[in-house]
Design a binder for these strands. Structure first.
Ligand SMILES: [Zn+2]
Ligand SMILES: [Zn+2]
Ligand SMILES: [Zn+2]
Ligand SMILES: [Zn+2]
Lengths: 159, 159
DNA sequence: AGCATCTCGATACATTATATCGGTATCACC
DNA sequence: GGTGATACCGATATAATGTATCGAGATGCT
């Protein structure tokens, strides 16, 4: 980021009834998963959907209150963790940022193309690293580095 | 991590002439790349190689000085950034940690299996996310989440 | 009602990372 | 062998990011 200043306004986020629908769908999904869509969780998702791009936790914290007052950090971090757990949002580790999931399916592997120049990001189908450039070039991307991080349990801990 | 307490001592890092050789190789590679292997860079790599596992920046900072005194944060972060740029080490974003590269080739896509229980990590060949479980099960790993983050330049910025 | 569990708000704190600046080393060139 | 450009370093200060903890309220179950 900030390496060049191409000023490209990408596609923006949701508003109006698109937003309402997305929130309603999320609530459904939440209920089906046996979880509660509480007020802070809904608000966090609303902000991510409105933004339509990755947001830093502290940027959300600043604008969290409906009344314009910032939230306390744990409130927002808890909500974001919840959304990520449910698959409604993803954390992008290399940006320390969070973004609403654009795919419907639950618990899918997440993959992102991230422009280091302008900050644009795109959620894409997961792919093998050696196929990244081919996949990315459909969007004109030139990839410089790919990282794959798979979390789980090792042989010893799984047993 | 810290979810269970299987106490498995994994393979450890380098020492003695294994360490010296690795450092010497790194210096060669550095020179061939037209870069300088300075004292702080060498020291950072030495610590990563000795550890043989991912290390937090501030853990390195604590033990950085040959004389037992800690380093200043920018010293270590600069060295780590350099090592990562050269492909001698990787940053593991989801752990905020750094590890010496176990593969020889330069600028390869990095992929890691990370045990959330004991913290064991393993650098592996990059793979397509849908093949992760198959690949990982060779080591007994059970994968719960995979993320792919590809950095580069978007169509607009590349042009 | 009584109890377990989940969730929240608040305070305080911990961890991780960077901006900046002045000085030194290194190198290319003349 | 001087001179300027660049890369690198050490130090100070501060910014950005993330958590531990605790008491109170909400929710669901029997
Ligand atoms: Zn997604
Ligand atoms: Zn871009
Ligand atoms: Zn590697
Ligand atoms: Zn383990």
């Amino acid at each position: 980021m900030a390496e060049c200043e191409h000023d490209h306004d990408g596609p923006e986020g949701l508003s109006g009834h698109h937003l309402s629908h997305a929130l309603h769908d999320a609530e459904d999904r939440c209920v089906r998963a046996g979880e509660r869509m509480t007020q802070p969780r809904r608000r966090a998702l609303e902000l991510l959907l409105e933004a339509g791009k990755p947001m830093k936790a502290y940027d959300l914290i600043e604008i969290f209150g409906e009344d314009g007052r910032p939230a306390k950090p744990p409130t927002v971090y808890r909500a974001l963790d919840f959304l990520a757990k449910l698959g409604l949002a993803h954390r992008i580790e290399s940006l320390n940022a969070y973004v609403a999931c654009e795919m419907g399916e639950r618990n899918h592997a997440a993959a992102f193309l991230i422009c280091d120049c302008c900050g644009a990001t795109e959620e894409v189908e997961p792919f093998a690293p050696e196929k990244v450039q081919a996949a990315a070039s459909k969007s004109g991307y030139i990839i410089e580095a790919v990282t794959v991080e798979a979390h789980g349990r090792c042989g010893a801990c799984a047993s």
